[in-house]
Design a protein around this nucleic acid. Sequence first.
DNA 1: GGTAGGATGGGCT
DNA 2: GCCCATCCTACCC
Length: 216
Amino acid sequence: MGPSYTLHRWPVPYHGSVGNPFGPALARAFYERPTIDVARGLLGKVLVHGPAAGIIVETEAYLGGDDLAAHSSRGVTGRTRVIFGPPGHAYVYFIYGMYECLNLVAEPDGKPGCVLIRALEPVAGIELMRQRRAAARKPQDLANGPGKLTLAMAITRAHNGADVTRGALTVREPRERRAIEIAVTPRVGITQCADWPLRFFIRGNRFVSPAKPVLT
DNA sequence: GGTAGGATGGGCT
DNA sequence: GCCCATCCTACCC
């Protein structure tokens, strides 16, 4: 029988044009900037992995220095090595025994800083995402959380260290630019530096995560 | 509409 | 042994 949701509630899948339906991949210089600038700048860009793609609608900045919520605050380890490396690479880590989260490394080589991708607005490969996210009952539930979006996009720890300026996993300019308003709140699910305003999302977008910290 | 509780395993002290 | 940058289900309005 059919799925438990009704098909008409889903948007028509976006098939794109022949060839690459999006703009060029962001260059390394985009990432080689202060982490907060990168976190804000990624909003509205398009994360692409093979046939699946989504507009980045929510991010969080994890800084170097005294940001104790950042994995890099404990120094270079086997896990955090990538965060200290060159910008424009993926840092993917395993969390809560079940999920994986995608970050993009910022700052010049040698300086820590990364951006957690927290939510996507699916724009291509939506049928594929539905298959990968059987628990999602509505389109906005496909990728509205850091663990959900890695499932929907089939991003795993195998992508840790991958160069996102080229290859199968990239971040690209959108086909058309849209004006957006950026909302800022504290980050979700942390205890250290819990009041730092480092979560950014597109105000009014229905695909942001359901987490609702106090607006600042 | 809402929330409490459990699943599940790697990283690090 | 404790800590998680989470998600889903069940259950209750």
